[in-house]
Simulated scan of single mutants.
Amino acid sequence: MLIGAVSKQTGLSQKAIRLYEQQGLIRPQRIGRYRHFSAADIDLLLLIREARALGIPLQRLKAAIRYQNQQPDWSTLRTFLLQFRGEVEAEVMRQQQRLQQLDHCLSSISDCPLLPAEKI
Rank of each mutant, 00 (worst) to 15 (best):
M1E: 03
M1D: 02
M1S: 10
M1W: 04
I3N: 00
I3F: 00
T10I: 03
T10K: 03
L12W: 02
Q14W: 02
K15F: 04
K15D: 13
K15N: 07
I17K: 03
I17P: 05
Y20A: 04
Y20I: 02
Q22V: 01
Q22K: 15
Q23C: 05
Q23H: 08
G24F: 10
L25D: 06
I26K: 07
I26W: 00
I26M: 07
R27G: 05
P28H: 08
Q29P: 00
R30M: 09
I31N: 09
G32M: 06
H36P: 00
F37D: 00
S38H: 05
A39D: 14
A40M: 07
A40C: 04
A40G: 03
D41M: 02
I42K: 01
D43E: 15
D43H: 12
D43L: 09
L44T: 05
L44G: 06
L45C: 01
L46G: 10
I48F: 05
E50T: 11
A51V: 04
L54W: 10
I56W: 05
Q59H: 14
Q59M: 08
R60A: 13
L61H: 09
L61Y: 09
K62V: 03
A63D: 12
A64W: 08
A64I: 01
R66E: 14
Q68N: 11
Q70Y: 08
Q71I: 09
Q71F: 03
D73E: 15
D73N: 15
T76K: 10
T76H: 12
T76C: 10
L77V: 01
F80S: 04
L81F: 14
L82D: 14
L82R: 12
R85Q: 15
R85S: 08
R85W: 05
G86W: 03
G86D: 05
E87H: 08
E87Y: 04
E87F: 04
V88F: 04
V88N: 00
V88K: 04
E89Q: 15
E89S: 09
A90R: 13
V92W: 09
V92S: 01
R94S: 08
R94L: 07
Q97C: 02
Q97F: 04
R98W: 07
L99D: 00
L99M: 13
Q100P: 00
Q101C: 03
D103T: 10
L106H: 03
L106C: 10
L106M: 11
S107T: 12
S108V: 05
S108I: 01
I109E: 01
S110K: 13
S110G: 06
D111R: 14
L114P: 00
L115W: 08
P116V: 06
P116W: 01
A117R: 12
A117L: 10
A117T: 12
I120L: 15
I120C: 11
